[in-house]
Design a protein around this nucleic acid. Structure first.
Lengths: 220, 220
DNA sequence: CCCGTGCCCGACCGAACGGTCGGACGAGCC
DNA sequence: GGCTCGTCCGACCGTTCGGTCGGGCACGGG
């Protein structure tokens, strides 16, 4: 019963070595596809190659496993996006860099966007069980939203952006990024190809850039 | 075992009269909140005020109930949105009308957007059980998407819109509408108030209009 | 009057659920 | 050899799952 990553030194996760990481990897894919209630621990264990009981050695309960997966996903996103909040440069440039980073993070793993979307709009109340872990995840989320909001307000203040409603714009941007990469088979049928190919990712970045330049920029 | 609405004459659904409609109403709300796997039939029956077995008199199985709910929701949306496809007027005007209608349809019931979003990005494979009903729903969906796509292409052809990627733009618009109204507590926390209030709906319409006028319109 | 029909119910089924428990097995340390 | 400790497992628990079954009850037509 460790429930906290064992320091994990310099090693990047080229492939999951420890059982704990393998469980997280598998659970991430499954939860993304079918949601918290739609995944059985039996299935997770089988996919990892362990007995079901062994899962409880690494995670106290199913909900603990879920919040661990959620936290890991959000952590990966913050790791990529947050740096661009404090970069030098004009607000528009920084906002573009930050959204590019977000898209990269979402495109990295196919499960990321779906999991994040589920975490956003689904409210399965985990009755005060995983309080601290969930609180940490929410703090990370708010840090990301605050950073984006600050960037937008700054751009408006210095005249680079139109005086739009900041929360509404953030919602639109989330829709254009998170929803898009979460749309799965439907999205692939719509654009007529894989969502995560290098070309499709490039196209989405261009789309978002255009959205910013034409839809957000103040008229010259 | 009817499984098809009993004609339902002129009566509008001011309140659900028949048991079947009550079941659909309740199931819609529950499925929207917790997803297909997260809702038990026992819970549905209890909320309706019936025994669990009685549900099976009106619907052959849980998945049949789910696709019925999905079809009803999508039907309501098409009912509102489709007319504006064939309206007279310039493409931009018609697109704005059609998106307004979509927003109205999503704002009408709190569950609509969530259910639709789930239907879009969730792929719980209902193993060839509810084939015909699901196919009809997908046909409705494609009709809506085609109508929107035609409107966009038309606008581009006549020079009203920039030569954007039509599928990508549709994805962005879905994100700006369906995702926004599905975002629930998170969205309310972000914009700092209820999502479905008349004022919030008006604001969202304005946001989308601005998105079109600034982000999509061809430069004069 | 009786019988068919629509609607509903309680009791029940096998399967799957999340979770517990006692112990097996190997690596390291004395 | 004996010891602990981390990891893993099979068997098992109570509960809930979707779904079935037989029958009860009201009603309308012969």
């Amino acid at each position: 019963m460790s429930d906290a990553p064992p320091a994990k030194p310099g090693s990047e996760n080229a492939e999951p070595s420890t059982s704990r990481e393998k469980i997280l990897e598998v659970a991430e894919a499954l939860f993304a596809r079918r949601g918290f209630a739609g995944v059985g621990l039996r299935e997770v264990a089988e996919a990892v190659g362990l007995g079901k009981s062994s899962l409880f050695h690494h995670f106290r309960s199913k909900t603990q496993l879920y919040v661990a997966v959620l936290g890991r996903v959000l952590g990966r996103i913050e790791e990529r996006v947050a740096p661009s909040f404090f970069d030098p440069g004009a607000p528009r440039e920084r906002l573009e860099r930050c959204l590019d980073a977000l898209v990269d993070a979402l495109a990295e793993h196919p499960a990321t966007a779906r999991l994040l979307l589920r975490g956003l709009f689904e409210d399965d109340d985990f009755g005060d069980e995983a309080q601290p872990e969930l609180a940490a995840t929410e703090r990370t989320l708010h840090a990301l939203l605050d950073g984006m909001g600050r960037l937008l307000r700054e751009g408006i203040a210095c005249g680079a952006f139109r005086p739009v409603s900041v929360p509404d714009t953030i919602q639109t941007l989330i829709g254009a990024t998170v929803y898009h990469f979460a749309s799965g088979e439907f999205g692939e049928g719509l654009i007529g190809g894989p969502l995560l190919s290098a070309e499709a990712v490039r196209r989405r970045k261009a789309e978002i850039r255009a959205l910013l330049r034409h839809g957000l920029a103040a008229p010259a």
